[in-house]
Computed example of a mutant assay.
Amino acid sequence: MENEKQNKKLKILCLHGFRNSGAILQEQVETWPQSLLQKLDLFFMDGPYPAQGKSGVDGIYEPPFYEWFQADQEYKEFYNFEECLEKIQEFMVAHGPFDGILGFSQVHSVP
């Protein structure tokens, strides 16, 4: 029984960064050492909203790109944040339970 616990993979929810995607994060994470990856069961989720502007990874990775929530042009007002949390919760209920969450920053550069 104890050996089973030691061999159990950690189930991790992976959330991508600003105007990115789950597929891109997955591609980036796959460069990690196999000795680590073999201990993890990774679940990649796309943000619920299509990117409303240019992605910082456009030209490096193929679209589509997603956002977790949206903002006005000055990034002073934010929209759809509560709805985003609901989408993440629904994903966690459908695919969880999870042992942890890996997240990239939602940070952006203000024009």
Rank of each mutant, 00 (worst) to 15 (best):
E82P: 02
F78L: 10
L102Q: 01
F44Y: 05
E2D: 10
Q52V: 04
P33N: 14
I60W: 11
P33Q: 12
D58M: 12
Q28A: 02
K8D: 05
E67Y: 08
P97Q: 08
L40C: 11
V107C: 12
E86D: 14
K5M: 10
L37F: 00
L25R: 03
Q70K: 09
G47H: 11
M1W: 10
Q106I: 15
L13S: 06
D58F: 11
E77L: 11
Y49I: 10
L25V: 03
Q89G: 09
F104S: 14
G100V: 05
Q106E: 07
W32M: 15
P64Q: 13
K8F: 02
G47I: 12
Q28E: 05
F81N: 01
G100T: 14
Y49H: 12
D41E: 08
P33C: 04
V93Q: 13
E86Y: 04
G59D: 05
W32P: 00
E74R: 13
M45E: 06
L40N: 02
E82V: 07
E90K: 15
G103M: 11
H16C: 11
V107A: 10
T31D: 10
Q70H: 08
T31S: 11
E83H: 10
P97L: 08
D46A: 11
Q26S: 15
M92H: 03
N7S: 15
E67D: 14
P111F: 08
E67M: 12
P64G: 09
S35K: 13
D99L: 06
G100A: 15
K54Q: 09
Q106T: 05
E77G: 00
Y49P: 01
V57C: 03
V29F: 02
